[in-house]
């Protein structure tokens, strides 16, 4: 089963990942090969097996709501590519 161009395009769009035409072709072949190899999982009987999301048996940890200092605004904005008046500057979402 080789992934179609449309499928890879759709997945790239879901992940908001731009790909060049060359990358698209390369990944299409490699991912098809990888997924084919992963078909091996279908041999495993997992009926009545619960999934594991985290390996350790942690329970929810509850804590008091305590006021603590947060990072200074200036420090957080230090790495921002675009900023204005103490805020991250973003492009228009609605056009």
């Amino acid at each position: 089963m080789k992934l179609s161009r449309e499928e890879v395009n759709h997945i790239a769009l879901l992940a908001r990942l731009g790909l060049s035409a060359e990358e698209m072709e390369k990944f299409r072949g490699q991912l098809s090969n990888i997924l084919e190899n992963f078909e091996v999982l279908q041999q495993v009987d997992t009926s009545d097996v619960p999934p594991t999301a985290y390996p350790t048996p942690l329970e929810n940890v509850l804590g008091e709501d305590e006021v603590a200092p947060s990072f200074p605004q200036g420090e957080i904005l230090e790495n921002a590519p675009r900023k204005e008046e103490g805020c991250f500057r973003v492009r228009a979402v609605l056009e």
Partner: peptide
């Protein structure tokens, strides 16, 4: 894929 892999993880 994801759910199946998470169950195999349990095993």
């Amino acid at each position: 894929y994801y759910l199946k892999a998470s169950k195999v993880r349990t095993l």
